[in-house]
Nucleic acid binder design. Structure first.
Lengths: 217, 217
DNA sequence: ACGTTCACCTAACAAGCGTTCGGTTGGTGA
DNA sequence: TCACCAACCGAACGCTTGTTAGGTGAACGT
């Protein structure tokens, strides 16, 4: 009998359907998500327990399942919000950048990306910290989200018209920008400086023995 | 009575002391370590269970504790071997590199590093995949091991005499090299090509509009 | 005023985890 | 030949985990 399976998700529960949006002001889903983001970003998915997250906002473990059907769906929610925030941070940076030269646009995008990755809210950090196949059940969803975001970077890098493999360059750019999360210490250098550093390193020769570099030294 | 506590670690067990080195040929510690490396590298520390590792070599879970006092010590053993292999891979590459120009030495070291990171034995991949504070009880040991290895890179980067922050450059170099593990597909590009790509990107200007780049295009 | 619904809590469940401990076997040195 | 010990096995332990189910009270629409 395969007529009506759990089509949309209406399986065991008869009527207790967690609403997608908050309907009452006492709803604390956003607090839950905030705490989840912090824990996922700093401890990773598997080391984070539901009780870690809920107790951080004064909830009990079971209450989580009123809002999220599972731990994986909780991560997915954080992940989606993370992508949304990085994307909008990049958009903001690109909007502020009025010079539309390819290298300037790249630097602006880098600045936006790094800013989001270093944001204390930890949403963006989660999408860097937890890798796609760390949670097999979400592999496709996570991969899709990442791809959607990286599409923009494909265009940015292609626009450079650089004399190297564009795919390699894009991968290295993102890995360099993401790595800031591991070593960054506040106060030493800002996202803007890091973005500028990366672009400078790429644009200008840094080999003192390079014949084309005679002028800059 | 605090006279004789578990001073050195001789607590419960009376005489069953696992020997540090293998004494009999039927010893399968190396097989265990191989399997552990594969699982730690591909699944991470927390998603890997003792039963995963032992069953991969036809052992039972409890038998692991004849060789390793805990799961954490098992990881540490893999980690140490991983550092050893990356180090020797870099040493080999540097030895083969007869031109001792700083940039050539850097490229050789990168080649060695990437080769080790992409090695199917997975030991080196482990030290990239599992981050220092993923296992709090080993944080200091792991950090020490990493520092020891990175010292060499400090020297290599300093020798470049590049007109940028040496620390930033070193961090980006290693993160770029390590990121190969996530996207590398065998057959598309070799460790040598990737190493050369990274060095090329740094040494030579890739901005077509850069005035100093007129000659190379 | 009142029944309904939201947003939780309480309490447990089964599965899986790292770990322990006594037993077993086959190779080994004397 | 035989005691011995390295190198396991078998079976459990206690704990944590994600998850479920039923109950509770305050806020809400009517």
């Amino acid at each position: 009998m395969e007529g009506d399976e759990e089509v949309v998700g209406v399986s065991t529960a008869t009527k207790t359907r967690p609403p997608t949006v908050a309907t009452r002001s006492t709803n604390r889903v956003s607090d839950l998500l905030d705490a989840a983001a912090v824990h996922f970003a700093t401890q990773g998915y598997h080391r984070t327990t539901i009780r870690d997250v809920t107790s951080a906002v004064g909830m009990k473990a079971g209450s989580s399942y009123y809002h999220f059907a599972s731990k994986a769906e909780m991560l997915l929610a954080v992940y989606e919000e993370g992508v949304r925030r990085v994307q909008s941070s990049v958009d903001d940076a690109l909007r502020d950048q009025h010079d539309d030269a390819p290298w300037d646009r790249l630097e602006a995008a880098l600045r936006g990306h790094i800013t989001a990755v270093l944001d204390p809210s930890a949403y963006a950090r989660t999408i860097v910290a937890v890798l796609p196949d760390e949670v097999p059940e979400l592999r496709d969803e996570i991969a899709t989200l990442r791809d959607g975001y990286e599409t923009q970077w494909r265009e940015l890098v292609d626009a450079l018209d650089a004399p190297v493999d564009a795919q390699l360059l894009r991968v290295f750019l993102l890995s360099a920008a993401n790595s800031t999360q591991t070593w960054f210490r506040r106060g030493r250098s800002s996202p803007s400086e890091i973005a500028r550093f990366i672009v400078d390193v790429l644009r200008h020769p840094m080999d003192p023995t390079d014949p084309t570099d005679a002028a800059s030294r």
